[in-house]
Simulated scan of single mutants.
Amino acid sequence: MPLSGSGETSAAQPLPMSFPLPAAAPPTARRTRARAVAADPDEETPAEETRTRETPVGDRQLVFFGAETAEPSVADLAGLLAGPGEVHRMGGTARLSVVVDAGWRVHVLVAELAQRGVRATWTPTEDQRYAVRTAYTRAIVPLAAAWLRGPTQQPPAGFQLDGRRLRLWLAAAGVVDPPEILLHLGGVDPGRWSVVGAALIAAGLVGELVEPGAGGPAYRISGRRRVLRLAELVGEPPPAAPPGAWPVRD
């Protein structure tokens, strides 16, 4: 069903039922903000553990830079643009869209976007996937301004990835295939991929670039420490994620 320019469907459309509707999430403990900790991105030794310093909240531990250490914001949507997400401008507004391969991803993304005050709709694609699109809104204009160079989409200088951005990227295009995780990319420009790869390194996640002909473009995160690091950063699995689709903390 096509979407109008406002991001609304012509009729109310339920979320795809290839995965059941998630139950309402219980109230979570109050989040606390944490300051960044410097890290050596190439180190994968016990020193890496110092980058995952934890702050107790209730009966759980929250990781610095993790998805649970700060309130969601529209800026987190840059995580979708690190992957296959695309942003488009129209006048004084902008819209973000991403195509996903499973109904559970639609559930997760619509819920994550709603947490950030951004309304989203979805439509099936001809190749049996789902296109998730936000409405055109002024809230996304800063993202569009940072990422668009004319018709070309590129990460801005100094682009960084934290737990909240990684959580959205994983929800849209992450594939858990133990003992590794693939984070699929968008676009066709290796320069765009290299900037994202540098941001992964800065987050303590050294990834191997998988070329398009070999099942990419994607970054492969492998090794127990790095996979655990990613699991700590992205936080608990969303209610809609099926078993095995989300990395878990040991």
Results as ranks from 00 to 15, higher is better:
residue 155 P to H: 03
residue 235 G to Q: 12
residue 161 L to S: 09
residue 242 P to L: 05
residue 186 G to V: 10
residue 206 V to T: 15
residue 160 Q to A: 07
residue 177 D to L: 06
residue 114 A to N: 00
residue 237 P to C: 08
residue 229 R to Y: 14
residue 156 P to L: 01
residue 212 P to V: 03
residue 221 I to F: 07
residue 175 V to A: 14
residue 183 L to V: 14
residue 153 Q to F: 02
residue 141 V to F: 03
residue 236 E to A: 14
residue 176 V to D: 04
residue 166 L to I: 12
residue 157 A to E: 14
residue 233 L to S: 10
residue 211 E to R: 15
residue 202 A to Y: 11
residue 201 I to H: 14
residue 122 W to S: 04
residue 218 A to Y: 01
residue 214 A to I: 10
residue 236 E to S: 13
residue 165 R to Y: 05
residue 191 G to S: 01
residue 144 A to H: 12
residue 230 L to D: 09
residue 140 I to L: 15
residue 172 A to F: 05
residue 174 G to R: 11
residue 193 W to I: 04
residue 143 L to S: 15
residue 248 V to L: 12
residue 235 G to N: 11
residue 157 A to G: 14
residue 158 G to N: 08
residue 171 A to T: 06
residue 161 L to M: 10
residue 133 R to G: 00
residue 177 D to G: 02
residue 119 R to Q: 11
residue 201 I to A: 15
residue 240 A to Y: 04
residue 248 V to Q: 12
residue 127 D to Q: 00
residue 207 G to K: 09
residue 129 R to I: 06
residue 190 P to L: 00
residue 154 Q to T: 04
residue 168 L to W: 10
residue 215 G to W: 12
residue 232 E to A: 13
residue 131 A to P: 01
residue 171 A to G: 10
residue 179 P to N: 05
residue 226 R to H: 13
residue 210 V to Q: 07
residue 119 R to L: 08
residue 179 P to H: 02
residue 228 L to G: 03
residue 167 R to F: 03
residue 148 L to G: 03
residue 245 A to Q: 05
residue 210 V to S: 04
residue 234 V to Y: 00
residue 147 W to V: 08
residue 209 L to R: 13
residue 206 V to M: 14
residue 151 P to G: 01
residue 188 V to F: 05
residue 128 Q to T: 07
residue 129 R to V: 06
residue 173 A to H: 15
residue 201 I to R: 15
residue 213 G to P: 07
residue 187 G to M: 02
residue 177 D to C: 02
residue 184 H to C: 05
residue 118 V to Y: 00
residue 140 I to W: 08
residue 177 D to P: 02
residue 152 T to F: 03
residue 216 G to Y: 03
residue 151 P to L: 02
residue 170 L to G: 08
residue 144 A to Q: 11
residue 237 P to S: 08
residue 131 A to S: 06
residue 241 A to D: 11
residue 140 I to N: 09
residue 159 F to W: 04
residue 126 E to F: 01
residue 212 P to R: 03
residue 232 E to M: 13
residue 158 G to S: 05
residue 151 P to N: 04
